[in-house]
């Protein structure tokens, strides 16, 4: 179900999918998505998925909900659950409206029902970028999210995993000379130049992309810093990023460290939003 935020939707605009629920992590991801959409002049597509596992659990008399504030247990049925999900969807939409209204962004919001991962993957197929909230780790959802992000990247979608905090600083982009790195660089320049900001380009020793970077950034009014990494391993990234404050880390999906550790791990390691550029992105 689409609910357009503006009368006419520009089909040429990039589309950013933001799966929403009512958690703090989801709200943090929404804020980052709004900033990114503003810089990329993209359309934000909110998605709320009614988990059918919850609806089915409501049909089982043996299931109870343990309230997270009081730790008390109470019975619930399918009707209760549907009502709660409707309310949660309404709150998610209200958050989307509140965050986008100041920026004057195009937005849509829809509610879907089914398996969360399946429906999210399906929705991500059509968009240019999906912004995922970091899992709290409380329910072991980290594993599911990692799995989902891997599948998303396999589907060649750009995936951004939100950090838990917001920092100010440069956009950092790892450039290893690959075609995906080229694309990551383009996106980084696009995101940085909106504010006339700074771009930190992390060059791998094997790449010699300084000239290429300067060529792409010419005329964008950007201040570009370069750092050369001894290799593209995670600890090399850490040594740089712990010194330099950044607001967004853009990585090509071809990075071995990424493939080895998963983007969730990288996001939690640096506590910054990590944007991974797949083939499609």
């Amino acid at each position: 179900m689409f609910r357009p935020g503006k009368a006419s939707l520009d089909p040429e605009k990039p589309r950013i999918l933001i799966p929403l629920d009512t958690s703090d992590e989801s709200l943090a991801a929404l804020k980052i998505a709004v900033r990114l959409a503003s810089r990329m002049r993209a359309r934000l597509e909110g998605l709320f998925i009614e988990d059918d596992n919850l609806l089915r659990a409501g049909e089982l008399s043996c299931c109870q909900v343990v309230h997270s504030v009081t730790a008390t247990a109470s019975s619930f049925d399918r009707a209760d659950m549907e009502r709660q999900l409707r309310l949660a969807a309404r709150r998610a939409r209200a958050s989307l409206v509140a965050e986008t209204s100041e920026q004057g962004l195009d937005w849509t919001f829809r509610v879907d029902r089914g398996d969360v991962m399946t429906r999210t993957l399906a929705a991500a197929m059509d968009v240019d970028l999906i912004v995922m909230g970091r899992s709290s780790g409380r329910l072991g959802q980290g594993q599911r999210l990692s799995s989902m992000s891997r599948q998303l990247l396999q589907g060649s979608t750009a995936v951004l995993v939100a950090g838990s905090r917001r920092y100010h600083g440069s956009v950092a982009c790892l450039y290893d000379g690959s075609s995906l790195a080229e694309r990551a660089l383009e996106v980084s320049i696009q995101v940085s130049s909106r504010d006339g900001g700074r771009l930190l380009v992390l060059l791998t020793r094997s790449s010699d992309g300084r000239g290429r970077v300067e060529e792409l950034a010419r005329g964008k009014g950007l201040e570009i810093d370069f750092e050369t990494l001894p290799d593209s391993q995670l600890h090399s990234l850490q040594s740089v990023l712990h010194r330099v404050p950044i607001e967004l880390l853009v990585l090509p999906n071809s990075l071995p460290a990424l493939i080895e550790t998963g983007m969730e791990t990288i996001a939690s390691t640096f506590d910054v939003p990590v944007l991974v550029i797949g083939d499609k992105g």
Binding site: D21, T22, D51, N53, L54, R56, A57, E59, L60, C62, C63, Q64, V65, V66, H67, S68, V69, F76, M81, Q84, L85, L87, A88, D115, R138, L139, G140, Q141
Partner: peptide
């Protein structure tokens, strides 16, 4: 059994595979 996050808290439900078992099957 799986642990589910609901809008008001957490719930435990029997599963078959990755899905919560439906009432008929239960």
């Amino acid at each position: 059994i799986t642990l589910l996050k609901t809008p008001v808290g957490l719930a435990l439900a029997p599963v078959k595979g990755d899905e919560v078992i439906n009432p008929e099957a239960f």
